Simulated assay, not measured.
Amino acid sequence: MTYSGDVTPGGAPAVRELDRLTITKLSVGPMDNNAYRLRCRSTGEQVLVDAANEAPRLLELVGDGGLAAVVTTHQHMDHWVALEEVVAKTGARPLVHADDAAGLPIEAETLSDGDTVAVGDCALEVIHLRGHTPGSIALLYRDPAGTPHLFTGDSLFPGGVGNTDRDPERFGQLIDDVEHRLFDRLPDDTWFYPGHGGDSTLGAERPSLPQWRARGW
């Protein structure tokens, strides 16, 4: 089945098989949050991006393969409701950007811009995107056999950047970081996976950047 990225709360996950990495996307309620299980195809090591909610479903998704780490893309509660239980039951390392660490319910190892998170033989690059929260991050996987894949949390969605509460300073930070650290660095075929809703590509969104900047949100 062709991967579309369309998932619904309570529904089946969507699975995308890359050459070295398997991406499994699951939507959890009640806020239609996306959680992503990343599995290295050569070693079997797994990492979870955002233990958002519904810990039993996330643990079922992890299965018996163990979990190396849980990366939280930012400190907002709807992205970490299941974090404490998932970490307790799997022994996974909790990871978050240093500027958002205080907002989590458990102590976590901290990340900085440019760090890498290993998923077996695969690597995720940490990209700091200020504005939605002080420590929001995206995770970049550069597929050696294909296009880049980008997990953007709530910093970038199809149709715009994340919520900055109409704060001009925060919006300026976020639109600048998204433009310069994502769109200026990565090609149009980069596929991105947001914290809620459907996926898109940078190429599909790139023409709208001036409109986003002009409208201020």
Rank of each mutant, 00 (worst) to 15 (best):
D6C: 14
V7H: 00
G10A: 07
R16Q: 06
E17S: 12
L21H: 07
T22Q: 06
M31F: 14
N34M: 10
R39T: 15
R41T: 11
R41P: 05
E45F: 14
Q46L: 09
V47H: 04
V49D: 02
E54A: 07
L58C: 02
L59S: 03
L61N: 04
G63N: 12
G65N: 02
G65A: 10
G66S: 03
L67N: 01
V71G: 02
T72Y: 03
H74N: 10
Q75D: 09
H79F: 07
H79Q: 08
V86T: 06
V87M: 01
K89A: 09
T90N: 09
T90C: 05
G91P: 05
G91Y: 07
P94T: 01
A102N: 08
E109C: 02
G114P: 04
D115C: 10
V119T: 06
A123M: 14
H128Q: 15
P134M: 03
P134Q: 11
I137T: 12
L139Q: 00
D143E: 14
P144M: 12
P148E: 06
L150R: 05
T152D: 01
V161F: 04
V161R: 00
N163F: 15
R170K: 14
F171S: 04
Q173H: 13
L174T: 15
I175N: 03
D176H: 09
D176K: 11
D177M: 06
H180A: 14
R181M: 11
D184K: 12
L186F: 14
P187D: 12
P187Y: 11
D188M: 13
T201Y: 05
G203R: 08
A204R: 08
S208M: 14
L209W: 07
W212P: 04
R213K: 12
